[in-house]
């Protein structure tokens, strides 16, 4: 019985929203810039996904715990300050412990600050909800972002380099599709993917 009831808890619904029904990339189409840029290698996608998840969770938590004292007028500035703090912390962590990944992500780590998902969750959820649910919501959104990134990266890395996580998966005779590593490849795969998932979820945007 417990398993059936789990479907009706707020946590379950938040997770489902973030990962599927209102997935930040596929449904809300947020954070597209960075997802096109860093989804050419699986390790970059994982690092970026974890980074965004950390930043969304941490900033949602802090903003949610301050929600009753944030003056409405400086709301946006507060979000920016909090978000940039966590992004800089993540960047320092990468520089210190994963210098090669930090190098290949380059400017995109800093650009998490402008990732609409983080700001979007702060404004749409964290500032109105208790800390516990804000954390779950941040986690779900971050994972939703990472999930799409990793799947797209698996397709792109396999076709562009013949590898997945630097392990050979394609036969040696396979000719690498270099275009997949570049921006156009990202657009193609991402677009097909968004289309596929929207078909599957039966999510259609109505024309007004």
């Amino acid at each position: 019985m417990k398993w059936i009831r789990i479907k009706y808890t707020k946590t379950y619904n938040l997770l489902k929203d973030g990962l599927a029904t209102s997935n930040p990339i596929v449904i809300a189409v947020l954070g597209i810039c960075s997802s096109l840029a860093v989804s050419n290698k699986v390790e970059n996608a994982i690092a970026m996904g974890l980074g965004v998840t950390f930043v969304v969770m941490a900033s949602s938590m802090l903003i949610s715990s301050m929600r009753s004292i944030i003056p409405a007028k400086v709301r946006m500035v507060t979000y920016m300050v909090v978000i940039s703090t966590f992004v800089i912390m993540f960047q320092m962590f990468l520089d210190a412990y994963f210098p090669t990944i930090a190098k290949s992500l380059a400017a995109y780590v800093g650009l998490i600050i402008t990732n609409c998902i983080v700001m979007g969750r702060a404004e749409a959820f964290a500032v109105k909800n208790p800390v516990k649910y804000s954390l779950v919501d941040g986690f779900a959104s971050g994972m939703g972002y990472m999930f799409i990134l990793v799947v797209v990266a698996i397709i792109r890395e396999a076709l562009a380099f013949g590898t997945i996580l630097n392990m050979r998966v394609m036969p040696l005779s396979f000719t690498n599709w270099s275009v997949m590593a570049l921006a156009p490849g990202g657009f193609f795969v991402m677009a097909l993917f968004i289309w596929g998932i929207r078909e599957w979820l039966k999510y259609y945007e109505s024309e007004v």
Partner: peptide, 27 residues
Amino acid sequence: MLVFVVILGSVVSFLLVGADLLTKDRI
């Protein structure tokens, strides 16, 4: 509003200084 901004500023500076101290040597 002013008090809030000052407090927020100190909290995030504290976080950043801490993170910097932890990672400086390795970087």
